[in-house]
Structures are given as structure tokens and as C-alpha cells.
Nucleic acid binder design. Structure first.
Length: 865
RNA sequence: GGGCUCGUGGUCUAGCUGGUUAUGACGUCGCCUUGACAUGGCGGAGAUCCUGAGUUCGAAUCUCAGCGAGCCCA
């Protein structure tokens, strides 16, 4: 049995309600059922980085996921809503170093890992609590943690398979390198920031060169000029001696040189920036490594060897000065690449690293086969793929990450691989099970590099679709949907597509739902330095999860960036209050007296309501099918507040309070509406819906099927709109007359083009005797008096004003229905100034005087005095 | 510098496959304590739909240019 109405409190206490249901709901309620005959709906949810704080951007993203997960469940899908944690990577290492005041090299690798794991476990715990509070219907039995052996053995397995397929290779190649973190990083991990630096002009064996990086002089391999630059015509091919260091470099010409920058001649070093890498490749220049992995100058820097780049720069500039070759210095604004985590400017170093080949065509094809919501987000992927120049560098020189499952033979250098059955392995701990396949030696050297964390997270879809390594294609692959933010299209989405294509040969998901970024109340990205950060916990505390969830749904159209806005949260909370009162009123009325639950719905108002409900259900369903959560929730709110509460309930109150059998139809209509609203709100406001539902049924609303309501009655729709409109107009009339809205009114007659079949609701709602008539009334317009506008009459007529008004007053009233253009005053004919005379009109029907309320061209209301 | 998105009452926002009285919320002003709700109801004021040009009978909506903003990236 459903709950007793005596328990129904007057006020909706979200704190109490949300806490209670959170206790009652059980995780297994939402389990994905293996072997179910329902169609599967697998969501490849984002594994967040366990920072310990579930921020508002996460909350927004997960709201979308939960809306669709709950909706799809109600629609009869076997929904998998897993939860992952993308644990590995620099941020945690940096945090551990901070907390323990160490660097990674101060403790052994195992110990350092242990510290990272411990921190991560604690952070995950905190974030889980926030997520439960938000009522996300996560299937916790499908939780995965990438740092656990069960998961990272899959990462290693995927590495081996791609290696065997020739998709992974090892090579010397320029990579972005953070000297502080001492690791290579991917382009996706490079940030750019502005800084002011000096552009140094110096004499390069007779040629003027401008450079921001004099410390790289030792790494200079060429000087480049633009082929059209007259200053350097004919000089390409010459050799120049590098100042201070003395080695010879050629002058080359290249279109990419900007003749207007500096002196128009640029020195190419290995490597100052990405352009240097390009030139180095195109012109097949030699490699001179001047900076090592710790950011210090190498032996080729001669007397500067061992210096860090900043001191080397100063030293070289000072030596240039004393040699008289430094010509001048200018300040320059430039953007430098920095490590996304520690903000240290990155260097481009040529290092032995592991790479994944980028299959441009196949990736693009797969990306195109995925259905993108919103569609235009695909463009970002397309642009990214088509402009990628370097392969994906997947090795990192760090510790807290999935180990690369490789050893090298100490004697012959041969790569030694583990078998898939032996995974997971940590080559720095485990020994290879077999001797070197080439020379038979058992002496080995472990690969100490580890994998980029995107190597873990980019197989999330393989994992959640049930990959255990025995199959090539996982049992539930591809997933139905990938929900994520647009900020990680070129990382997570791209890498996932790349890996799915490489491992399975096809697209990872059928659809991708891309959400926008959450901006602060000031319209800028939330950041601590701006001070515009709002945390979910604060909102949950003050207004509850259901209000926060409504903000997420309504704050912006799907895919758009969303500005955080307390107003929306407050309005959402008010909607809950309003809805609570609607439910309370409805439940009490349904309970007040027994009614026939199968009574036919015949009254106009009742049919109108159900017709509107039917339209609302259709609209909400269509919106949710295309993930337009804003539209969906808006339609529900409008139906509940506008249609049901403000119009319908006000119209039928008379019948509800009475005893007659025509009350039954209203009860049936209300009960059906309340039921439907609960179900439709369930994905958006799970706590609230469950609470109301508990007074209707003893089951969970979240186990109910989605609403089906087909009560389409176009005629009732049209007539109902007239009914509502007429009542609104008469209320306005009362308002204008200074009457209370429930004040009694005399006889009201409403003339409509076609017959209205409203029995008694309108009259009861307006506290009057209301008669519906078809056609137009036999109206007689009479002038009951006149008013004059002295502002016009005065200046125009001056002394004749008084006589003018007297003349008008004496005229037969019916002659004033249309104001004459000329009138005669004392024998003189004068023009009547426009707007001077204002006739006071009234109407009579069949001889008695009435007030007239025109609704539109075809509907007229008369009120007898 | 490139890509993408956006520019609508004081604020936020819908509409943008061309024709509506330009939606809703917050704020604001007036009236109303009526037996679900004053966290309410009813009503009002408030908009050069960024600017300019073009297409069209007709543009917030389509095209181009400009200005401005945001995000991602170089």
C-alpha cells in the first residue's frame, strides 16, 4: 500500500527527503543485467581524475548522463551506467611530492606508487559520496579503477596487441618534454601562456640574427632566410661559422621564414620550437642536443655544459657583449608552451620514446560514423585529425602509471615481450618468463618508461562493453553512447576512437553526447584566481540535489556552455514547492471522497487537460530522445504549473468541492496527470518524484515504465483553450473593476463561433451565472455620454470652446456614434479637431445595458449590470 | 594566428529548417490574504532581436562584412 496521507507534511523538506531516499535506494536497483532480453544501452561514462573534489563541471556532465540513463531505463533498456576512475598521471605524483615534501627520486618506485595509490583511494571515496548525494543512478558493481591490476592489465594487453599489429613503435623523435617533471608529454598536455621576453639581435658572422633563445646557439644547425628576401639574395648555400662555438652551418632558404620578423634571418636549432622540428625534418639537418632531460646544457655547449638554460642564456649574452657581437635587445610578447601541470616552460627534445601510429583515414571514418550531439561538435574532431602531424607519444618517464610491458635483452638488445596470460607485469619488478628469443640470454634490462594515462582511459569503452581479453571484440561493443565535455574531444574522444579502430576495426560508440563547459556567474570559466568558483556541495546544502539537477537541465541548450546561476537554482527549488502543493491538493482531493476510478472523462475541462497532457508527454519524450533536456523539463514545468495548477485546478475546484458524480471525471484527470508528472520528472528530480510517488504506489517510480498517455482530442483542445481564455478575460475584467477574483458577478453570456460544451465549470470558477451562446450577440451600441480633451480644444478653439462643448452636449447621442467632421456654432461652421470629443460608449442586448469584453474577432463576452 | 560557438527587455535564456502579439525565469511596479501554495495568484511596464549591407513580398531567423564575447588550440 502507498503511504498514508496523514504523513503528508505541509512543507516539502528536501533535506529530510533526499537523505531518506538515499538510504533506501539500493545500488542493485540499477544493475545492468547480463543476458537480459531487454535491448542493451551501454554508456561509456567518463572516468574522472580522482582529485578528491567532484566539481560543478563534473556534476553538470553527470546530470546529463543520469537524465538519459534513467530515461532509457524507463523506456525498457538494459542500461549500463558504470563508473571509472582515471587514476594515473602527473597531478597525483605532484600532489604526493607536495604532501610528503619529496621528489619522486627520493623514495623507491614501489614506495612512491604506494603513496600515490593511497592518496587516490582517499580521493575516490570523497568523490563517491558527492555522487551518491546527487542521486546519480550509477551501477557501482561496474566500477573500475585504472590503477588496479584488473584494469591496467587490459591496458597492457591492448599495448601488446597493438605492438604485434605494428601500430606501436619505438623511435628517436622530438617530443614535448617537461624538465621539471622529467617526462615527455603529449600535445594535449601542453598549455600556452603569455610572457614578455627579450628578442636579442646579434652578429652571426656578418649576418644579423634575432633570437629569443641564445642559449640554444650550441644547437644551431642552420640559418634560414626567405627566398624572396632581397637582403639575402644569392646567399643560400653559403656556410657560416657559429659565433662562440665555431661550428659551420649552412644558410638555407625557406618560404616559412617571416621576412618582417627581426632581421628576416632566423637560426634553426634542435629544437627551439615546433617550427624548428619542421625545418629540421624538411631540410634533413643534423641533430645537436644542447639540453638534456634535466634541463641542463650538454657537453656540446662547451664551457656552458651543466648550466640550466636560464643561466646559460645570461652567460652567453654576457659573452656576446664582451665580444661586441650583441647588437641590441628588444622586449617581445610571446606565447610559450608550458607543462599543463606544473607550468614549467617545456623544451622540445629528441628522445627515444614509444609512439602509436595515427591512422588518420580510419579514425576519421569511424568518427564520422558516430552520431554527434550536437552535430557541429564533429567539426572539432575532423579539424583535429586532419591537422595532426606527429604520432602519439605514449611513453612517460614517470612512475605512477601503467608500466610498459617490455624488457630488453642485456646482451643483444632484443625486445622481450610477456605473453598475454602473464599480464599484468611490472618489468621493474618482474623478470621475463622466457630467455631472449634471439640469443637465449637470460640477462635483461627492464623498460622503466610508463604509459601515458590516456592509454588507460582510451580503452574505457573496451572495458565497459565487457572485454576480458579473450575476444577481439567485446560482447557489448560498440557502446550506445559516450557522454563527455567538448574540452576533451581531441584527447579522450579522439584517443578512444583511435584505439577502437586499432583494436577492433570499428567505431567505439553509436552516439556521442557533448556537453558544454560550466562558466561562473560572471560568464567566465570558473577559476580560483578569478574567485568565481561555486562548488556543488554548497548548492546541495542550500537547495538540494533536485534543484541543482534542474539547473543542469534548464540552464542551457544541450551542447552550449552553461553559466552557473543561483536564480535558476532558486527557481528550481520554488518549482518543487509549487509541485509539492499541487500534489498535496490533488492527493487530498482524491482522498476526500471516494470516486469511480474508471469514470469516463466527459467534461470539457477534463478532456482539455488530458489532451494537453498527451501533448506534453509527446513533447517530453521527443526531447529526451534527442537529449534536449532543457526542452523536456520546460514542457513538464509548464504543464504542471501553468496548465494544471493555474488553469485546470482553478476551473474545476467547484466540482471537486461538491459531491455530485461529475466530480469523478475531474478526479480521474487529476490522478492521471499526477501519475504522468511523477514519471516524467523522475529522471530530472529523482528524490522529489519518488517522494510524491510513494503516496500513489508502494513501488519505486524509478522502476515504472515511461508514461504512455494518448488522449488526443483536438476539439476539446480548441474549446478548452477558449474556456481558459474566457475565464482569464473575465478575471482581468474583475481586476480592472477592482473586484476580488471570487467576487460574485451578474449574468455573463459568452458568444463563440461554435458551440461550447462546458456544463458548469466556467460559471463556478467565476462565481457567476454563465451562459454560452453561439454566434454574435444582437448588440446595440449606445453613447452614454461624452468627454472632451481640453488639451486639444483649448488651443484650437480658444473663445469658442465653451459654445463648442455645449453644442456637442445638446446633440442627439446617436449622432455621436461617429464624430461629425464639421459642426455649426451660432451660424458659423467649424471643423471638429481630431481627438477633441471622446464618446462614452455602452452596449445593450435586448434592451438591457451590458459591459462588453471583446476576446477576439469572434468571441464576445457580455456582463449584465 | 587558427578552429568552433555565441551576441535577444536591467540580468540570464527560448525561438534561429524565414511569416508568432519574440518564450520563460529572476528583478521591477500595481492589485489580491480566495477553503494546495504569499516559496502564491492576477495584471502592468520594460526589447533599435550587436552594427552595416544583401537575398526576399516578408529576416531575430538565410548570405557577406565588421565589431564584441566565450571555449578549445597553435
Amino acid at each position: 500500500m502507498s503511504r498514508d496521507l496523514n504523513e503528508l507534511p505541509k512543507i516539502y523538506e528536501y533535506r529530510e527527503v533526499e537523505a531518506r531516499w538515499q538510504q533506501i535506494w539500493r545500488d542493485e536497483d540499477v544493475y545492468f543485467i547480463e543476458g537480459s532480453d531487454k535491448p542493451p544501452f551501454v554508456i561509456d561514462t567518463p572516468p574522472p581524475y580522482p582529485t578528491g573534489e567532484f566539481h560543478i563541471g563534473n556534476a553538470f556532465n553527470w546530470c546529463y548522463i543520469d537524465f538519459l540513463a534513467r530515461y532509457k531505463r524507463m523506456k525498457g533498456y538494459n542500461v549500463m551506467f558504470p563508473q571509472g576512475w582515471d587514476c594515473h598521471g602527473l597531478p597525483t605524483e605532484v600532489k604526493v611530492e607536495e604532501i610528503h615534501k619529496i621528489t619522486k627520486n627520493d623514495v623507491d618506485r614501489q614506495k612512491f606508487r604506494e603513496m600515490c595509490r593511497e592518496l587516490t583511494i582517499g580521493n575516490i571515496k570523497k568523490m563517491r559520496a558527492s555522487m551518491r548525494r546527487m542521486a546519480f543512478s550509477i551501477d557501482w558493481s561496474h566500477e573500475y579503477i585504472t590503477m588496479m591490476p584488473e584494469y591496467f592489465s587490459k591496458t597492457q594487453r591492448s599495448f601488446l596487441r597493438m605492438f604485434h599489429a605494428g601500430q606501436i613503435y619505438q623511435s628517436d623523435h622530438p617530443v614535448n618534454f617537461c624538465p621539471r617533471c622529467e617526462t615527455a608529454i603529449a600535445f594535449a598536455e601542453v598549455n600556452y601562456s603569455d610572457r614578455t621576453t627579450k628578442l636579442n639581435y646579434f652578429n652571426f658572422s656578418g649576418l644579423e640574427i634575432a633570437t629569443t633563445r641564445p642559449e640554444l646557439l650550441a644547437a644551431c644547425v642552420a640559418v634560414a632566410v626567405h627566398p624572396e628576401d632581397k637582403r639575402y639574395a644569392g646567399r643560400a648555400g653559403e656556410d657560416l661559422k657559429v659565433p662562440i662555438f665555431g661550428h659551420d652551418v649552412p644558410i638555407i632558404s625557406d618560404e616559412a621564414v617571416d621576412p618582417s620578423f627581426g632581421s628576416g634571418a632566423v637560426m634553426i636549432c634542435t629544437f627551439g620550437d615546433k617550427q624548428d622540428v619542421l625545418w629540421w625534418k624538411v631540410h634533413k639537418l643534423p641533430l645537436r642536443k644542447a639540453i638534456d632531460k634535466t634541463g641542463r646544457m650538454t657537453a656540446i655547449a662547451g664551457k656552458y655544459a651543466g648550466m640550466d638554460s636560464a643561466s646559460c642564456r645570461e652567460a652567453i649574452l654576457s659573452d656576446m657583449k664582451s665580444e661586441g657581437i650583441l647588437l641590441r635587445q628588444e622586449p617581445l610578447q610571446q606565447r610559450v608552451g608550458t607543462c599543463w601541470r606544473c607550468k614549467t616552460p617545456i623544451e622540445i627534445l629528441s628522445l627515444h620514446q614509444w609512439f602509436v601510429k595515427i591512422p588518420h583515414e580510419a579514425a576519421l571514418k569511424a568518427a564520422r560514423e558516430v552520431r554527434w550531439y550536437p552535430e557541429h561538435m564533429f567539426l572539432r574532431m575532423e579539424n583535429w585529425i586532419s591537422q595532426m602531424e606527429w604520432d602519439w607519444c605514449i611513453s612517460r618517464q614517470r612512475i605512477f602509471a601503467s608500466p610498459i610491458p617490455i624488457w630488453f635483452c642485456k646482451d643483444c638488445g632484443q625486445i622481450i615481450l610477456p605473453d598475454e596470460e602473464d599480464l599484468p607485469v611490472d618489468p621493474t619488478v618482474d623478470a621475463p618468463k622466457k630467455p631472449c628469443p634471439k640469443c637465449g640470454s637470460t640477462a635483461y634490462v627492464p623498460e622503466t618508461d610508463v604509459l601515458d594515462t590516456w592509454m588507460d582511459s582510451s580503452i574505457s569503452v573496451m572495458h565497459v562493453t565487457g572485454w576480458d581479453g579473450t575476444q577481439k571484440i567485446p560482447p557489448h561493443f560498440p557502446a550506445q553512447i559516450r557522454p563527455q565535455g567538448h574540452d576533451i574531444i581531441r584527447t579522450w574522444a579522439f584517443y578512444t576512437i583511435l584505439r577502437a579502430v586499432s583494436l577492433t576495426g570499428s567505431k567505439p560508440w553509436e552516439q556521442i553526447l557533448v556537453n558544454g563547459m560550466v562558466l561562473g556567474e560572471d560568464g567566465f570559466k570558473m577559476s580560483k584566481s578569478r574567485g568565481n568558483v561555486t562548488v556543488p556541495e554548497e548548492i546541495l546544502e542550500e537547495y538540494g540535489a533536485d534543484s541543482l539537477r534542474q539547473w543542469a537541465a534548464l540552464g542551457a541548450a544541450t551542447g552550449s556552455d552553461i553559466q552557473f546561476n543561483w536564480n535558476d537554482v532558486v527557481a528550481a527549488n520554488r518549482f518543487l514547492t509549487k509541485m509539492w502543493n499541487i500534489a498535496r491538493f490533488s492527493l487530498m482531493q482524491l482522498d476526500r471522497a471516494p470516486y469511480d476510478k474508471n469514470a469516463p472523462v466527459t467534461a470539457l475541462a477534463d478532456r482539455w487537460l488530458l489532451n494537453r497532457l498527451s501533448g506534453t508527454v509527446r513533447e517530453v519524450s521527443e526531447s529526451l530522445e534527442t537529449y534536449q533536456f532543457d526542452k523536456g523539463l520546460k514542457a513538464i514545468r509548464e504543464f504542471a504549473w501553468d496548465v494544471l495548477a493555474d488553469n485546470y485546478i482553478e476551473i474545476v475546484k467547484g466540482r471537486l468541492y461538491g459531491q455530485s458524480p461529475d466530480r469523478d471525471g475531474a478526479c480521474v484527470a487529476i490522478r492521471r496527470s499526477l501519475d504522468a508528472i511523477c514519471r516524467m520528472l523522475a529522471p530530472f528530480t529523482p528524490y522529489f518524484s519518488e517522494e510524491i510517488w510513494s503516496y500513489l504506489s508502494d513501488e519505486s517510480v524509478h522502476k515504472q515504465p515511461w508514461v504512455s498517455c494518448t488522449f488526443d482530442d483536438a476539439k476539446a483542445g480548441e474549446s478548452g483553450e477558449i474556456l481558459v481564455k474566457v475565464i482569464a478575460e473575465i478575471r482581468r475584467y474583475k481586476h480592472d473593476k477592482g473586484l476580488a477574483l471570487n467576487a460574485p458577478l451578474g449574468g455573463v453570456t459568452v458568444y463563440t463561433p461554435s458551440a461550447m460544451d462546458d456544463e458548469c465549470d466556467a460559471g463556478a470558477a467565476l462565481n457567476c451565472t454563465l451562459t454560452w451562446k453561439t454566434g454574435m450577440p444582437e448588440l446595440k451600441q449606445v453613447v452614454s455620454g461624452v468627454r472632451f480633451d481640453m488639451g486639444i480644444i483649448g488651443p484650437k478653439l480658444r473663445g469658442k470652446a465653451k459654445a463648442f462643448m455645449e453644442t456637442i452636449e445638446k446633440m442627439p447621442r446617436e449622432d455621436l456614434l461617429t464624430i461629425p467632421e464639421m459642426i455649426e456654432i451660432g451660424g458659423e461652421t467649424i471643423a471638429v479637431p481630431g481627438g477633441a470629443v471622446i464618446p462614452q460608449l455602452s452596449y445593450t442586448v435586448a434592451g438591457s445595458s451590458v459591459d462588453l469584453i471583446p476576446v477576439n474577432d469572434s468571441i464576445i463576452i457580455t456582463v449584465s449590470q
